[in-house]
Computed example of a mutant assay.
Amino acid sequence: MAASLSSPSGWSVSMMAECLSTKRACFRAGYTAGKQLCGRRFVLRAGRLRITVWATGVMEARKKAEAYADFRAARNGWPKPKMGWQFREVK
């Protein structure tokens, strides 16, 4: 009798691997969201920059996003905008 590469339930190895990677991704997403008990996820865009922050409100999210945008600009050697970062919320 030839050995097969499938599990006793009839799933192939590639199907099992895909299922496990999907379960892992879902667990990580749920774990990250569950850690942030008192906040919501805000995705803000300023030009090409897309910044995701966890905050309780829009103003706090903008402050955190501005600090992170300043950090990324300094890290990459970009100048900060003279008018400041103009953030738009992405749905």
Rank of each mutant, 00 (worst) to 15 (best):
R28D: 12
P81M: 11
V53S: 05
K80Q: 09
R24N: 10
K63F: 06
A55E: 05
M15I: 00
R41N: 04
V58M: 15
G84C: 04
Y31P: 00
R62V: 08
S4Y: 05
A33F: 01
R75S: 02
A67C: 03
G34I: 00
S21P: 11
S14H: 14
R45S: 09
C19F: 09
S9A: 09
L37Q: 14
K80G: 01
D70C: 10
E60S: 10
K35W: 04
K63D: 14
R50I: 13
A55L: 08
A67F: 00
V53G: 06
G84F: 11
G47Q: 11
E60T: 06
F27V: 00
F27Y: 13
V53C: 09
T52D: 10
G30V: 00
R45L: 10
A17S: 12
P8R: 14
K63I: 03
M16K: 14
A74Q: 11
L37F: 05
R50S: 10
V90I: 15
T56A: 12
L37G: 05
A61F: 08
T56W: 09
P8T: 02
L5N: 15
A73R: 12
A74K: 14
G77D: 02
C38W: 15
R45N: 09
V90M: 14
S6D: 08
A74G: 00
Y31I: 00
R48I: 01
A3D: 03
F87S: 11
A25W: 08
M59Y: 15
R24T: 05
G84K: 10
M1K: 06
R24A: 10
V43E: 07
V90N: 04
E18L: 09
K23H: 04
T32M: 10
R88D: 09
Q86T: 07
A61T: 01
M1Q: 07
A67Y: 01
E89Y: 12
G39L: 09
S14C: 01
K23E: 11
Y68W: 07
A33K: 14
A29P: 00
G47V: 07
M15Q: 15
M1F: 13
M1A: 07
T22Y: 12
A65G: 04
K82C: 11
C26L: 12
M59V: 07
K91E: 12
G39M: 07
R24E: 13
A61V: 01
P81S: 07
A74S: 05
